[in-house]
Design a protein around this nucleic acid. Sequence first.
DNA 1: TCAAAGCGCAACTCATAGTTGCGCGTGTGC
DNA 2: GCACACGCGCAACTATGAGTTGCGCTTTGA
Lengths: 113, 113
Amino acid sequence: MSATSVDDELWSAIGDPTRRRMLDMLLAGGAGTATTLSAQLPITRQAVAKHLVVLDAVGLVHGTSVGRERHFEVDRAQLAKAAAQLEAVGAAWDARLGRIKRIAESIQRQRNA
Amino acid sequence: MSATSVDDELWSAIGDPTRRRMLDMLLAGGAGTATTLSAQLPITRQAVAKHLVVLDAVGLVHGTSVGRERHFEVDRAQLAKAAAQLEAVGAAWDARLGRIKRIAESIQRQRNA
DNA sequence: TCAAAGCGCAACTCATAGTTGCGCGTGTGC
DNA sequence: GCACACGCGCAACTATGAGTTGCGCTTTGA
């Protein structure tokens, strides 16, 4: 019934904007290391590494050691599950709001114009 | 292209699990005050009031003073916009993942079983 | 063998969520 | 009309977590 019944850990993992960017970058590049990602982010390698720990803990990414480097790539199934949760919460709100969605779309169109 | 292009303020507002619960409660009850909501939450009235300030700042709720009470209710259009953003991010990931979604669903089924 | 790259660990700083305490306005009962 | 209780806002304090800095270990390449 409530939107809070979703896996809160998974949600909070993808709730962080930096982690969403990291997921996008990993999806775009196929894989990456903490150093690689930090080069394209406004935070240090250490901060990126901490985020990777969080993402790894919920199974969204998986790291493999290759020599002195550690490559991370997205767990596509888990990310699909996360995406489904996002859509589920949005859909739940939509359902509660009835058929107001068209109003929001018109407002969005209005703001874009 | 990237999922980070959404309104980050609106996203972070709904990213907090407590605020999502508050939105749910306001949607279910029609309206509520900081005291009312705090009675059903594990935090104090003051903390709820701060969350309401955040939600008000992004337009998700609107407060009206009635005597010595201050009633808050959901801005349905703005919440619909937020829901649309959630679904958009989920859909964007789905698109990047190709048609892997069915795999996630099967895994989800597997975990439920 | 030695310098540089890449990483992990630990201590520190800083921002923010949450709490506590208090005072002010607003109803309500006598 | 007046005192008391309720509801709220403001301000100071605390605690937790994100981010940085510094250091040492391992691996790679010349």
